[in-house]
Design a protein around this nucleic acid. Structure first.
Length: 427
RNA sequence: GGGGGGAUUCCAGAGCGGUCAAAUGGGACGGACUGUAAAUCCGUUACUUCGGUUUCGAAGGUUCGAAUCCUUCUCCCCCCA
C-alpha cells in the first residue's frame, strides 16, 4: 500500500492535488509539514500531522518538519475570525525550542537518504529584507489571487477586518514552500485542511517563480462523534508535554474516547495495520465493556509519546484508581511507591504542623488546597454527593479530617466525581 | 455630520422600580444508569465566618428601594448623508 492509499483508508485524506500520487510513485520524494509555534508544546491535535510525517517516512520518503519561527511572528489568519495577537520574541523562541524537541522524538533522523530534517523558516527570512521580499516574492502573486482565499474573504466580509500583516501571511508561507522546493527538492506540502489555501499559494508560487511543479495534500479536521472539538479534556488542552499533561492524564484522555471515536482514532493515531484494526474492532464489538479498542489506542499512543516507563506508571495509576485497588494496596507501599502511583495526579502539600488539629472538609478542599475554587463550590459538590476522601463519600461539609485519617500517616486521596483524583500530601 | 438600537451572571438571551443572585436554552460540573462509552433522566452553575456581602458596560444621581428611571462617559450595531 502506498502512502496515499494508506492515508485514504485511514480517513486522513481531505484534499489532494492531481498528480500527487503519481509523483510519489516515482520514488523517494521530499515533503513537509509546518508547525506553528503558538505554544511551547504540541498538543494531541498536532499528532495527526506528526504521524502523517512518520507515515510518509515509513513509505520511503523524506520528511521535513518545518517550525515556523518566521510565520509565527506574523500569525496565520486561517480559521481565525479575529486578528491574532503577536507573540513576543522571547515567547516565540521558547515555543520553538519546545516543539522542536518534541518533534525530534518522533521521526528518524538517521536512516540514510530519507532521514528526517527539521528546518526553521526564520533561517531564510531573518536576513531577507522587506524590500527584497516584496520585489522577489510579491511580484509573482497577485493581490487578486490572495484575496480570493477563503481565509481572507471571510475576514474582508466581517467587521473586524484584517491587518496587512496577516494578509501577507500566505505569501510568507508560500515562499517557504518555494524555498524548500528550490533548496531541498521538496515537492509536497501536507497539512490540515485549513492549510489548503496557504499550501496552494505555495505551489502556485513555485509554478510562477520557479517554473516548477509541486504538490499538496491535506487531512480532514478531526472532530468527535458528537461534533465537539477534538483534543480537550476537563476544559483544557491535551498536550504532549508531560509537564502540562501527565502521561496518566494523557492515557486517560484516550481511554475515555467513546466507542465511535475510538474506532476512528485508532486508524488515525496508531500504526496498526488494517487487519489488526479490524480485529480490534471485532473484539470490541463482541465485548464492548472490555473496551479493547480504547485500551489498545491509549496504550499504543501513550507509549509512543511518553515512552515505556511513563506508560507503565500510567497503567499502574489507572489500575489502582479504577480497578478494585483498595486502600490496603496503598498501605502496603512505601511513600515513594505511593508517589509513583500518583505521579500523574494533581498533588497538594500541607504542613504537618498545620494539619495536626485537623481540618473540616471545606477548609481542606477549598482553602488548604485548590481542589475547589471556593468553599461554596466545595460545599455544593459535597452535598451533591460528588466528593470522596480515601474512597469514602464525604458525608457533609463539616466533616473533620484528622491525622488518623491519613493513609500511611501522610496521604489523603481526594476524589471529585468519579474520574478526578487528587493527592494531598501532609509533610 | 444626522437619526435609531444595544451593552445582563461562561455563552446566547429574557427581565424594564420592589416578589431579581436575576426566566429560558446551551455549555460546564456533579448524581443515577452503565463499560472510567453513547443515549437518557436528575441536580448544581456569584462569594460567604450562612448574619450577610458584592453582581446586570463605567462613573455619578433620583428613590424608603434601581438590572430596571435620570446625567455624563466608553464601546458595539443599523439607517440616512
Amino acid at each position: 500500500m502506498n502512502f496515499v492509499e494508506e492515508l485514504r483508508w485511514r480517513g486522513l485524506l481531505h484534499d489532494i492535488m492531481p498528480g500527487t500520487e503519481e509523483e510519489l510513485a516515482k520514488g523517494m520524494a521530499s515533503g513537509y509539514i509546518g508547525f506553528d509555534p503558538t505554544a511551547d508544546s504540541l498538543h494531541v491535535g498536532s499528532l495527526l500531522q506528526i504521524f502523517t510525517l512518520i507515515r510518509f517516512q515509513k513509505a520511503g520518503h523524506k520528511p521535513f518538519a518545518l517550525v515556523g519561527g518566521a510565520t509565527g511572528m506574523v500569525g496565520d489568519p486561517s480559521g481565525k475570525s479575529q486578528e491574532r495577537n503577536l507573540l513576543s520574541e522571547d515567547i516565540l523562541d521558547k515555543n520553538l525550542k519546545g516543539i522542536q524537541t518534541q518533534l525530534e522524538r518522533f521521526l528518524d533522523f538517521n536512516c540514510g537518504l530519507n532521514s528526517a530534517e527539521i528546518v526553521n523558516n526564520y533561517d531564510w527570512f531573518k536576513n531577507y529584507s522587506f524590500l527584497d521580499f516584496i520585489r522577489d516574492a510579491g511580484k509573482h502573486i497577485t493581490v487578486n489571487y490572495m484575496m480570493s482565499k477563503d481565509s481572507v474573504k471571510k475576514r474582508l466580509e466581517s467587521e473586524v477586518g484584517m491587518s496587512f500583516t496577516e494578509f501577507s501571511y500566505q505569501l510568507i508561507q508560500g515562499y517557504d514552500f518555494y524555498y524548500l522546493w528550490k533548496n531541498k527538492n521538496c515537492v509536497l506540502q501536507m497539512g490540515g485542511s485549513d492549510q489548503w489555501g496557504n499550501i496552494v499559494t505555495g505551489t502556485e508560487f513555485i509554478r510562477r517563480k520557479g517554473g516548477g511543479q509541486a504538490f499538496a495534500l491535506t487531512s480532514p479536521l478531526i472532530k468527535k462523534s458528537d461534533g465537539t472539538k477534538f483534543g480537550k479534556s476537563e476544559g483544557g488542552n491535551v498536550w504532549l508535554d508531560a509537564k502540562k499533561t501527565s502521561p496518566y492524564q494523557f492515557y486517560q484522555f484516550w481511554l475515555n474516547a467513546s466507542d465511535d471515536d475510538a474506532a476512528n482514532y485508532i486508524k488515525i493515531f496508531t500504526f496498526f495495520n488494517q487487519q489488526e484494526i479490524e480485529n480490534l474492532i471485532a473484539e470490541h464489538a463482541e465485548a464492548p465493556h472490555q473496551r479493547a479498542l480504547q485500551k489498545a489506542l491509549a496504550k499504543d499512543i501513550t507509549q509512543r509519546v511518553h515512552g515505556d516507563e511513563a506508560l507503565e506508571t500510567a497503567l499502574k495509576t489507572t489500575d489502582f484508581l479504577f480497578g478494585n485497588g483498595s486502600l490496603d494496596f496503598l498501605k502496603s507501599l512505601d511513600d515513594e511507591s505511593v508517589l509513583t502511583v500518583f505521579e500523574g495526579i494533581t498533588q497538594f502539600t500541607i504542613l504537618k504542623a498545620e494539619f495536626e488539629a485537623g481540618y473540616d472538609a471545606l477548609t481542606l478542599l477549598a482553602d488548604k488546597t485548590s481542589i475547589f475554587p471556593s468553599k461554596g463550590e466545595s460545599k455544593k459538590m459535597i452535598v451533591g454527593g460528588g466528593v470522596s476522601i480515601n474512597r469514602d463519600k464525604v458525608p457533609n461539609p463539616e466533616k473533620i479530617f484528622i491525622s488518623s485519617d491519613l493513609i500511611n500517616g501522610k496521604f489523603l486521596v481526594v476524589q471529585k466525581g468519579k474520574k478526578n483524583y487528587f493527592l494531598v500530601v501532609v509533610v
